[in-house]
Design a protein around this nucleic acid. Structure first.
Lengths: 142, 142
DNA sequence: TTTATAATTGTAGTAATTACATTTTTCGAT
DNA sequence: ATCGAAAAATGTAATTACTACAATTATAAA
């Protein structure tokens, strides 16, 4: 497991106006080092050994706080499971219908070209774009 | 409420290999005449007066059946609420963060141009594309 | 009409999330 | 240092969307 410098994490949290408690640093650090779009439940399971007092409520509260401060984003792919992503760069997702894995799809040149997508009416304002493809990944072809 | 000819609905159901029970016709008819991406719960509420014996289990079973037969599609926009859409034409969605309404976004020319989106690795196969924008609709600008 | 099959129903169960009251921690002011 | 207020974390209980399952009802072929 790659380790990030705590100082950097703390710095990023502060920059978003979040006071860096051990739980918050732990959760944010986990998200940064594990770009696997984990659910709250998985984060809890993985972090409990390192933060024995951690409660599931705190995980949920913290993730909601991160989202409201735009430090991480929600990834909604299947019903009934909310996932989280600390990578705020423009990207899409791909979920394999067989192995269930979620892959990141980064655009060439770093910027997503949404010009081909349907336009919203001119008096609408867009705040976020969520794109998810589903199919079968390389290892799951028949 | 616009009324569709039952015969047509029944015909479409049969074409997908679905035997047209009153409940199924009712649910499919509701979806066709109300392109509002309803949840199972809403469908239940709206249809109960016309189909007094309808049960929520039937609504869920029926929707799942429709999806498996590719007669309708699931629309996942927020966590914890699965929506359904009988419009199988290529289109995206827009959800207003204020009034919560979900709008359809149809592409010019009927075909969605996804060429600008990030490419999947060449050994992946894509079966569906889900695109949802979020922001504020025309009536909800401040 | 009988009988097998398919569809519907209601109840009870599960899983993810949230509400809330209590406890613990943090941190500035004395 | 220590007091006290505000912030954060915790555990339990409640809520909500959905599913499993067993029992009943409807359908349709023989």
């Amino acid at each position: 497991m790659k380790e990030l410098k705590e100082d950097e994490l703390i710095c990023e949290l502060r920059a978003c106006g979040i006071s860096p408690s051990p739980q918050r640093v732990g959760i944010y650090g986990f998200l940064k080092t594990h770009p696997i779009h984990p659910t709250a439940d998985l984060i809890m399971k993985e972090l409990k050994p390192h933060l024995p007092t951690l409660s599931l409520t705190t995980v949920y509260n913290t993730l909601k706080l991160f989202v409201s401060k735009k430090l991480v984003s929600e990834v909604i792919i299947e019903d009934g499971e909310l996932r989280f992503d600390a990578d705020m760069k423009d990207h899409a997702h791909f979920k394999c219908l067989k192995c269930q894995q979620v892959f990141d799809l980064f655009p060439e040149g770093g910027k997503m070209d949404t010009s081909g997508l349907p336009q919203v009416p001119s008096n609408f304002t867009v705040e976020s774009v969520h794109i998810c493809l589903k199919g079968h990944c390389g290892s799951c072809q028949e």
